[in-house]
Amino acid sequence: MFAPSTPMARRQARTLGGSPLLRWALIAVALVFLGVFLFVPLVAVFTFAFQKGSAGYLAAVSHPEARSAILLTLTAAGIAVPLNLVFGLAAAWLLSRFRFPGRALLLTLIDLPFSVSPVIAGLIFVLLFGRQGWLGPWLAEWDLHVIFAVPGIVLATVFITLPFVVREVLPVMQAQGSDEEEAALTLGAGGWRTFLRVTLPKVKWGVLYGVILCNARAMGEFGAVSVVSGHVRGVTTTLPLHAEILYNEYDFTGAFAVASLLTLLALVTLVLKKYVEWRSEAS
């Protein structure tokens, strides 16, 4: 049985995979492409960052302005991620369990931060909270500063990263249905206990995946934050903005040292992402 099937398998591989020459050509194209656009820049970031040795690197990342940028980035992400986690879970639960008028509109609105240019997103907040904006006079009356201040950066970050958790959790919830939740109800569990003991464990890998992506974007966001930031050094500059400022001042070593922190974040994110994918497939 085995021997006659082998040539057939080979024939099948040829029809599906094309000739070996074509296969190798495609692999080579993919590798060159990845090398030029991913690997070389990655190496470049760390090469430039350590141009003045590890002392220069440490000086750049421990500079007070750099430290304040790190703190602000962590603050913005630290507020945006939990908010979007709660919103994402609630919205995914709502959208997967109920059919209601306006459901399609809500789904479209959730995708809005993905479809709108980040710069436009930033401008929306300027137009809302800026001095000439709708709420500007009212804010001025109470001496509240949103634009060119930390609240504006947090708002812009929340807006930009809003879809990540919903978009990851919704398909998982839809695929798993609500049978287990109904079983929990018949066993006497209330809504809250059912959510904590049954729903959340079912979707936990989807949630974690969404949180990782949400966090990566929150820390790396440039466009929207740049518009609302006002670039007050050491006050309203996040890590990406700080890297840009240093670069514009021809401090390449400093710019790349700061950039290398973001690159490390990206690498950690990738590893975590792979781990979560592996675990969610295993379970």
Partner: peptide, 19 residues
Amino acid sequence: PVQQRGVGVVFQSYALFRH
């Protein structure tokens, strides 16, 4: 409400808590 009816339900899909 369902919690207070004291009924045991068995579903076609088993609906066991997989975790």
